[in-house]
Design a protein around this nucleic acid. Structure first.
Lengths: 246, 246
DNA sequence: CATGCAAGGTTCCATATACAAGTTGGAGGT
DNA sequence: ACCTCCAACTTGTATATGGAACCTTGCATG
């Protein structure tokens, strides 16, 4: 004889002093995060949750509704609730890895290392990276190409105290961004986006006309309170646009 | 004799088919966005809203609760609800109100209405707004000035079904963005940012040289599944940069 | 004067109930 | 075979009610 109770759910934890609806949310989140319920898997209906967990329909409703606004599930009236596809959109925009981004478009990525060296920071740079004037700072300039077409000029300074081995990396295999986030998880980022005309040397590297407008992204990132890197990303306006959706 | 009804609130709009709690949210958002209620200003309590608007306490509760998760207000148990300090860089960027942004810098904002009219949508526009070809679509072009210097050219199309009264608004008092979010809360946005050279007519309005690079933000927003607006924001590169930090 | 306490306002949670609106699937007719 | 229509299920909204937890304020008591 089949039990009325679906053993997908354990009973709610009495000891926890979390609100009921939070407990319901936690149960469902668990299934999703462990992968037990894959994308598009059906989530129990509100009435089903009422039966299974013995809560009122309104608290089941609140749990599901909030999970929907959090992007964990999607709900459509008349059909039901389903596990939402994993949200991409790494942050807002920009923190995305240029190599990944190109890969997703099915194109080839190539990193052209223009310069890598360690420098002594002047006042401006020291201010940007929040280090003492005269400190050692790593500097790299890399030209990223998509199918052999230059698409991003990356001019980066790195706090040598945070990433002493930065210049030892093989930047044709791992992007600076990927390396840095792997050794120092980003806790804060600040960025400015503007439209500029390129400098002559930038034109040459990007193979564009002097009059072509470019997107300039200037970004600084911090990890646990310390400035990690300050980078200047220059994109030819005709070949690239930033995208974001949420 | 003082009336029990606080005239801070107008009565709810019967014609709108928005849910009640959304209407309540809209009323409060309007006060906040227009600056009538400054930061830390007290928001009416749930029971006060019940008296004023004649809704049940639970829907007042839902409205305030959602506004709190959206970051519009903060609530503390036992004390009340208060207008939250403007959060820097709403989410990613861009959905910010240009008037607010200028106001924060302590400068004066002026909206110069270039064009407002209703048009019949062609295939491209209909596709962008997800309406039938031939539908009526509102069109507005507004030049925003900061201390009398042109800083943003806003070229906007609005789904007339969602916002039939769009063109009746006084855009020198409330920005299109503020109005639209007040009547149709944003559920999704898609945006592209690119660097372009301006068109001749755009140069003239923005008072810039033909060769000056500009930031172009193209954005579409949805509210509960329906496309609300498609907008093209053009900023002179020398006068503006997008900022975000998280 | 200081401490404590009670009252009233506020948010927060939970439930029961009702109806509206969208989807699906099947029964039953043509 | 096809169509129509309805029943059942789903989410979405709105209301009424009750209690708990928390804060402020003012007053009574020591």
């Amino acid at each position: 004889m089949p039990s009325v109770i679906d053993h997908d759910f354990t009973t709610l934890d009495e000891r926890s002093d979390l609100p009921l609806y939070e407990m319901v949310k936690a149960q469902i989140k668990l299934k999703v995060e462990t992968g037990e319920w894959p994308t598009n898997h059906r989530v129990p209906s509100e009435n089903r949750i009422v039966e299974m967990l013995g809560v009122s329909r309104m608290t089941a409703n609140r749990a599901l509704r909030e999970l929907a606004t959090e992007g964990v599930i999607t709900r459509v009236q008349g059909r039901g609730s389903f596990v939402a596809p994993k949200k991409r959109s790494a942050g807002s925009m920009g923190v995305r890895n240029i190599a990944e981004e190109i890969g997703e478009r099915g194109l080839s990525h190539h990193a052209n290392i223009i310069l890598t060296q360690t420098e002594i920071s002047g006042p401006d740079l020291a201010g940007a990276l929040e280090v003492e004037v005269g400190s050692a700072v790593h500097h790299s300039i890399i030209l990223h190409e998509e199918d052999h077409v230059p698409i991003q000029l990356e001019d980066r300074f790195v706090n040598a105290e945070v990433a002493p081995d930065y210049l030892k990396q093989d930047f044709s295999r791992i992007t600076p961004n990927a390396y840095l986030t792997s050794i120092a998880p980003i806790s804060r980022t600040e960025q400015y986006i503007e439209a500029v005309l390129p400098q002559p040397w930038e034109c040459k590297l990007l193979a564009i006309a002097r009059s072509e407008p470019c997107l300039l992204v200037r970004r600084r990132t911090w990890s646990s309170g310390r400035a990690v890197t300050s980078v200047r990303l220059l994109y030819p306006g005709s070949r690239y646009r930033l995208q974001s959706s949420e």
